[in-house]
Simulated scan of single mutants.
Amino acid sequence: MLNKRNIDQINDSGQLVIPARQPVPERITESLPPHSKRLKKEDQILNSAQKLIIQYGFDKTTVEEIAREAGVSKGAIYLHFPSKYAILDRLVERETRKVLEDLIQHLDADSRGYTVFNIYKFSVRALLHNPFLAAMYTRDRKTLGEYGTRLMSGEIGRAGMNFSADFIRHFQHAGMIDPDVNPEVLGHIMTGLKYGLAGMSAVEISPEKLEAISDLTGEMFQRAFGREDGDQAAAQAALKEMFAAGLSLLAQLQTEQKRSAS
């Protein structure tokens, strides 16, 4: 049925003109709670938990203390996380994802690209500048408690943060590492030295000296075993694939850990 409004919208050819859909008024969209607000609150809680866990250890940190540090109620904590263990799970996942994403960004931006030197340098620097990450890597029981130590032991340590034999093989196939090198042996050497450097972050050595040590160690690996004329695209794809597998494994182990703890 045509009313006056319809008639006004009929063109010279007798066709009804459907007006363009108008955007939602700004005042309405502003009243909708954005998803980012929830993520921001979660990050606020996680940052506070991370600070307290580094300072006092996971076992001695309570939900009440996390709430107080974050400036929220205890009930607000449970709106985002069902337990203190869930907070640690999320922290481990967040910091693991962050270091992997940062590593990719650094490698993409650096002129030497995906060389052994760069991967070693940037991954060690990430540990030196993040005490929680260093505790994850060294499986520091004082910081992570028994729950966190079990979570970081075994497969996740090999898949997510170590220079595994698979990592070496992938980069050998990409032409970035000498194909004659034994992958298992080189992986153990690189991981052991990285572990030692992460532990040195607790000693009174300046960050600048630690970075210089890690850079020199990476350069030694590059000169002895690395190649700079390999397939950078293949190396990048392999690294991203391994990181994705590591994050997937982390989620799986977190689920198994929850089942065993219940």
Rank of each mutant, 00 (worst) to 15 (best):
D59P: 11
D140V: 13
L247I: 15
Y195K: 15
T62R: 00
A245F: 06
S248A: 15
L107C: 02
R5V: 13
A165Y: 03
R150P: 00
S73I: 02
R112P: 01
L39Y: 14
D229G: 01
E228G: 08
F58C: 11
L127T: 00
F122E: 04
I177H: 00
L32I: 15
E26D: 14
A135F: 06
I189W: 05
G192S: 01
R259Y: 08
T96I: 10
I104F: 04
D89M: 10
V17N: 11
H106F: 08
R90S: 14
Q44T: 14
S260Q: 13
A159I: 11
I156M: 11
A70Q: 01
G113T: 08
P179R: 02
D180A: 10
Q50R: 14
V124Y: 07
F132Y: 06
Y137P: 10
G157C: 09
L239M: 10
A251V: 07
H35E: 14
A212V: 03
Y120Q: 02
G230M: 04
P131M: 14
E155D: 09
S260P: 02
I18C: 05
K98R: 15
F122Y: 12
T191K: 03
F58V: 09
A234T: 10
Y114W: 04
I66E: 00
N11Y: 00
M242W: 02
I18K: 08
T143W: 12
K194M: 15
F167M: 09
T29I: 12
Q50E: 10
E95T: 13
H170Q: 12
L32D: 06
A198F: 00
S201W: 03
S36I: 13
Q172R: 00
F221E: 06
L91H: 02
F81Y: 15
S248M: 14
G113W: 05
A67Q: 02
I45L: 03
T115I: 05
K60Q: 15
G192V: 06
L151G: 05
H80N: 15
D102I: 06
K74A: 09
S201T: 06
Q22F: 14
K258N: 05
G187D: 00
D12V: 15
A237F: 03
G187C: 02
E93V: 08
S48M: 04
T61H: 10
R150I: 06
K37S: 08
V72F: 09
A237L: 10
N3H: 11
L52A: 07
E241D: 09
Q254K: 11
G246F: 03
P82D: 07
A245H: 07
V185N: 03
S123V: 02
T217P: 04
L46N: 03
F81E: 11
A70R: 00
M176C: 12
D102T: 13
A245T: 05
M161S: 10
I119H: 07
